[in-house]
């Protein structure tokens, strides 16, 4: 079943069109990789799906579980099951990670009409997940991402993904700024979350990440469009030949 349907999406930022009619369908259980050179519009797509302000959708639509995503505020999208793992997770001094996690989880549950987590249940869940991600407990007492290394920030994103249990995860350049060990831990965390009911969209510049998170479908983006789609072998082909051929095609 189609989880995410992006249809002929046109997006402008400050009078400049970035996406020129992008179409993409992601089914439940699938992992899609979106590759492309800098400036091809990969991050713009992820931001528009999550609802970041500053983007003007001039045409097309985004359906999530058949509902019009563009009509929803970012928090409504999150409660419906959309999760964006940020390329650069922000630091929020003064907001303890644990408090943030609980507030966010309960806000989502409240929006869905579910009961809030009790403190013991919440703590148990956080402990389980953070252990599997190699996140020490004292990190959870600090301000959100404050003083975290690049790897810790990305692991904190995966921790949230595991806690919130979204049905669509968008990973925006998860590999940026990570060394191989940090990348492996984060990727293992992501792989553990693969399930028949959950889809993932992995946005990356490099093929490297896809050695760890193996996609079902690979899309190549150039100049605001998907110019080619294929299996995981397409990523290897790109690694060998580069993006130049597609820039001409677009």
């Amino acid at each position: 079943m189609a989880l995410l349907e992006v249809k002929d999406l046109k997006v402008r930022v400050e009078e400049r069109e970035i996406l020129h009619g992008l179409t993409l369908t992601v089914n439940e259980g699938e992992v899609h990789a979106i590759m492309g050179p800098n400036g091809s519009g990969k991050s713009t797509l992820s931001h528009v799906i999550a609802g970041k302000p500053g983007y003007e959708v001039t045409d097309g639509q985004i359906l999530f579980k058949g509902e019009d995503l563009l009509e929803m505020s970012p928090d409504e999208r999150a409660a419906k099951g959309v999760f964006l793992a940020f390329q650069y997770p922000v630091e929020i001094p003064g907001v303890a990670t644990m408090n943030f996690l609980r507030t966010a989880l309960n806000a989502q549950r409240k929006a869905r009409g579910e009961s809030e987590y009790s403190t013991p249940d919440f703590l148990k869940k956080v402990r389980e997940v953070s252990k599997s991600l190699n996140i020490p407990q004292d990190m959870l007492k600090r301000g959100v991402n404050v003083g975290f290394s690049g790897g810790e920030k990305k692991r904190n994103e995966v921790l949230q993904m595991a806690l919130f249990e979204p049905s669509l995860c968008i990973l925006d350049e998860m590999d940026s700024g990570l060394d191989i060990d940090a990348l492996r831990i984060a990727a293992d965390g992501v792989n553990a979350l693969r399930s028949p009911k959950r889809a993932m969209v992995v946005i990356t510049h490099y093929q490297r990440l896809l050695n760890y998170i193996v996609p079902d479908v690979v899309h190549v983006m150039s100049k605001g469009r998907v110019v080619k789609s294929g299996g995981k072998e397409l990523a290897l082909e790109l690694e060998a030949s580069g993006y130049a051929q597609f820039e001409d095609a677009a």
Partner: peptide, 30 residues
């Protein structure tokens, strides 16, 4: 209030007012 922090919190499911409240509390926390 920092828009990028607000968006991060909203993208995690906090409604606007609740996201603002969390950042305001952090601001006065020190």
């Amino acid at each position: 209030l920092d828009d990028s922090l607000l968006f991060y919190l909203k993208a995690r499911g906090l409604p606007e007012k609740q996201a603002q409240a969390l950042l305001i509390q952090a601001f006065v926390g020190e």
